[in-house]
Computed example of a mutant assay.
Amino acid sequence: MNGKRWVAGVLGGVVAAGLVAGCGTPPPPRAAPGPTAGADSARTAAPVPPHLPYGGAPPSAAAPDGPCPEGGVRLREGAGDAAMGLRVADVQLVNCGAQPYELEGYPEIRVLDRSRTPVEVTVGHGSSGITTGAPALDAPPGKVVLRPGQAASVGLVWRNLVTDAERPAAEGWVLEVVPRPGAPRVALELTRSIDLGSTGKLGVGPWSGVTAR
C-alpha cells in the first residue's frame, strides 16, 4: 500500500510539472508516507500460545522429525475439529524407513497425561457409544501398505463432557501407539489435548488412506 501511495505521489508531481512548464519550478512531489510503526511490531510481539485451541491443523513450523524410530515409522498430529463438546482428531503414521510397511485393522492406543502417566480411558473401535454418523471411524478395516515416504491415518473421537463432578477431568497430552501387533510402541506429543472430561471413552477408527509425506 505504501508503495502505491509513493508511485501516485510521483505521477502527480510529473503531471503538475507539465501543466506549469515555463511558469516556474514545480513543487517537488510529496514524500511517500512511511510505514506505520505499530502494525509490524504488534505482529512480531504477539505471544505464541502454549498449545493450539482445539480445531484446525497443528503448527506448520513444527520441530524437525529427527532420526527415524526403531520401527521404521513415526507419528504426526493431523487436523482436529470440535462441535458441542464432540471432538474428532486425526493421527498420521509415516513410513520413514526404507521398506514397505503393512497395516491392517486397528492400532493399539494408550493415552498419557503431561507427566506420561496413563490416563484412565476405555478405548473402543469405531464411534459406538460416543456419537453416530462417523463414516471414517466406522468403516470396515482393511489392509494398507505404505511405501517409504507414504502415510496412513487413523481417526479418534471422544466427548469433552464432565458428568461426574467428583471425578477429576481426564486430559491426555501424549499418545502411545502400537501400529500393528508385535511392532515397537511409538509416542506422539500432542499440541491439542485429548480432553475427555469424565466420560472415560475414546473411539478409534481403522487405519485408512495413503498420502505422500
Rank of each mutant, 00 (worst) to 15 (best):
R87A: 08
V119Y: 08
A61N: 07
V73H: 10
V7G: 10
L19Y: 02
R87K: 07
V14E: 01
T132M: 11
A169H: 06
K143E: 13
V174D: 02
V144S: 00
G182I: 05
P168G: 14
A17S: 15
P148E: 02
V177F: 01
S193Q: 04
W6H: 12
R114Q: 11
A31M: 05
G38R: 03
L86N: 09
I130C: 12
A183E: 06
A45T: 02
S153Y: 03
R192N: 00
A134Q: 14
K201Q: 14
S60E: 09
P50T: 10
G133T: 15
A63D: 01
L103E: 11
P27G: 06
D113K: 07
G182Y: 02
A212Y: 00
N95M: 08
W207A: 03
E120R: 14
G97N: 06
P58I: 05
P69W: 03
D113F: 08
T191E: 09
R114F: 07
M1E: 12
A63T: 01
P141T: 03
G34D: 12
A32L: 07
V7R: 13
E77M: 03
G200T: 00
E70L: 12
E70T: 15
L156A: 10
V15P: 01
V94C: 11
V162A: 13
R192Q: 07
N160Y: 06
A63K: 00
G149R: 04
N2T: 07
Y101A: 06
A89W: 02
T163K: 05
V145E: 14
V88T: 13
T132Q: 15
V48A: 11
R43G: 08
S41Q: 15
A89S: 10
A82L: 10
A63G: 00
P26Q: 08
V111I: 14
D81W: 12
D195P: 06
L196R: 10
E104V: 10
T44M: 04
D81C: 03
V154R: 05
K4S: 09
S41M: 14
W207I: 04
A187V: 03
P148V: 02
G197K: 02
T117F: 05
P184E: 02
G203L: 06
G9L: 11
P100F: 12
V154F: 15
A136Y: 14
R185H: 01
G209V: 04
G209T: 15
P53C: 01
E166A: 15
A170C: 05
I130W: 13
P107T: 12
Y54T: 06
T163M: 06
G71W: 13
W158I: 01
A170H: 04
G149Q: 04
V91Q: 08
V144T: 14
T211I: 04
R116I: 04
A165M: 03
I194F: 09
A46P: 02
R185A: 15
V10M: 09
A136M: 13
Y101L: 13
L156C: 09
S115F: 05
W173K: 01
R76G: 13
L196T: 09
D113N: 14
A79D: 15
S208M: 07
D113I: 04
V88G: 09
N95Q: 11
T117R: 14
P53Y: 00
R74C: 04
P35I: 03
N95C: 10
A134N: 13
T36S: 13
L11R: 04
G66R: 00
V174P: 03
G205T: 10
P59C: 04
G142Q: 11
G97R: 09
L112K: 09
A45W: 06
P168M: 12
W158D: 05
